[in-house]
Structure formats: structure tokens, C-alpha cells
Design a protein around this nucleic acid. Structure first.
Lengths: 136, 136
DNA sequence: GTCATAGGTAACCGATACGTTACTTATCGG
DNA sequence: CCGATAAGTAACGTATCGGTTACCTATGAC
């Protein structure tokens, strides 16, 4: 999973219209481009551009059948991202999730230092709070 | 979890520099903006703009301490996204993941219809392959 | 063949993303 | 106080994004 493909996947997901297209294709596997267009007020070309973004991210897979392009959802990119990020943040997951003192709304400039995410991380930090020098 | 906040989170994740910043802050909780800058060749202002994007997505949380802004990672947005998408795609997850015939490289215009994701979805589809009319 | 329909391409436009340089503010250490 | 350092702001240039209209191609129904 290259950083570039990760960029493509996240960028594709970063738009409500594209997420809705994914939901539609998930609910109607093999639907056509015109079918998807029925659900949006924007022009067909705009939908096609969104589809292109989704296809470049491999999130939607087309299958040419006659003159129609049947669209299918492909969850493999989602799985890859899921795997990478859960392993990468598994420790944090547990730390912040099980910390009953954690409150999202207390973040920021709150002066009570025992009831926020920052404190939870300070407690679980391994000591290298400051970088020594530039990592190559 | 509004669509707008989801846009912010995914857009923030859709850039290798910002993902790297998240990794850095995860490894060095409470580090300063200047600390983060040491790891990039770009200007400090560019890093600060990336930090702004991450903060607007609530993925990074600042804590002002004197003249330095201590940075902390906040995994709550990641958890929210994780929860929403795993529940939404759980059926697909199992379908494509356990289908031994599934091959990513066979997608596209392959003529062998029994060895690709599209076929897996056709098998698991609930029949409504085509939309009847516009969903409100 | 004819024609309606599914799909694709080109050119354009305003807004936003991502980077820069220059300048300003504020705090810490002596 | 004073200089060094952390951070923030302003203005700007280029590229990409997200949408449009207009036009073109191809296939299926009849």
C-alpha cells in the first residue's frame, strides 16, 4: 500500500457525494452510471467525474457489458486501510478508549489537566516527548 | 458524525505529510510545532497549515503551554469512522474476504465471470440490481 | 436503417489546496 | 532589559477540484 494509493483512497472518501455513490453501488451491485445519476441533482458529467475518482482509488470497479458500465463496490482498499491503521494505532485505541476520564469536550485550553486526552497520552508516553534531531 | 466532519477527517488523512505528522505526534506526545518541523524539508508555515487541517479535523489537539503549543493525537475521529464503516460494510467485508475465488487483479474487463469481485457481489446481491425510482 | 439512450470528451470557470516569502507577536533565558 | 526562539498573520502563485455546457461515439430496440 503505497502512500500515493492511500492518498487516492482517502481523497476519494473525502466527499459526501462519492460516499453516497459508494452506498448506492453497494446497495445495487451492477448498476449503471445512469442509475447512479438518478439519485443526484448534479449533472451526469459531475457524477462521472466522481466515479472516475472512485475507480482510480479502486473503490469502485467497472465491468463493461454492452454499452452499459456495470459498477461494483470493492472493499479491498477499505480493508487495507483498516488493517494498517488499526495495527498502527492499536495501543492508542485501548489507551484512550478505556480511559474513563477521557472527555472529548475538555480538549483544548482546559486547565484541568487530569481529564483530557493529552493527559492520557502523557501517562502512556514512553518518555521521548522531544525529538533529538532530524530523522533521515 | 456529520458528513461535513467526515469530509474534514478524510481530507486531513488524504495527504502523506499530514499522516506523517500524525505518526510523529503519536510517537512524541506533547511535542511542539518546531519539533514537528524538524522532520520536514518544507517551510514551517506549510507544516503549520497541515497542523491546522489536522486540528480542524480534531485529529490533533493542541495545548497551549507558555509560548509553545504542545500537540497531542486524538484517535476519537478515527474510532468514529472505524465504527461507522465497519458496521456499514460488515456484510461485504465477510463476503469478499472469505471468497477464495476473489482476485483483485482479475477486475475490469476480464471475461471469466466466476473469479472476480463483481461475481461475488452478484451472488450476494439481494435482487434489487436496478433502482426503481429516485430515492428521496 | 433509425432513433433513443448510455456513455465519453473538450473547454471553461470559480473555489480551494499547497506551497512560498516577508513581516509581526509573544515568551523564555541570560 | 535584550536577544533568541516559538508561533502566528498576510499576501501571493500555481495546480487541482468540482461543477458547468456543448459536442461526439456507440449500442440496443424497433
Amino acid at each position: 500500500m503505497t502512500p500515493e494509493s492511500m492518498d487516492l483512497i482517502f481523497a476519494a472518501l473525502a466527499h459526501a457525494t462519492r460516499r453516497r455513490i459508494m452506498d448506492l453501488v453497494k446497495e445495487m451491485p451492477g448498476c449503471s452510471v445512469a442509475d447512479v445519476c438518478k439519485y443526484f441533482d448534479t449533472s451526469r458529467i459531475a457524477v462521472m467525474k466522481h466515479l472516475r475518482v472512485l475507480e482510480e482509488a479502486q473503490l469502485i470497479v467497472p465491468r463493461k457489458r454492452g454499452r452499459v458500465r456495470e459498477l461494483y463496490l470493492n472493499v479491498v482498499p477499505l480493508q487495507l486501510i483498516h488493517d494498517r491503521w488499526t495495527t498502527e494505532y492499536s495501543t492508542f485505541w485501548a489507551t484512550q478508549a478505556t480511559d474513563l476520564k477521557f472527555r472529548l469536550e475538555s480538549l483544548g485550553q482546559d486547565d484541568s489537566p487530569t481529564t483530557d486526552a493529552a493527559t492520557a497520552q502523557r501517562r502512556s508516553a514512553s518518555g521521548n516527548d522531544r525529538p533529538g534531531r532530524k530523522r533521515p
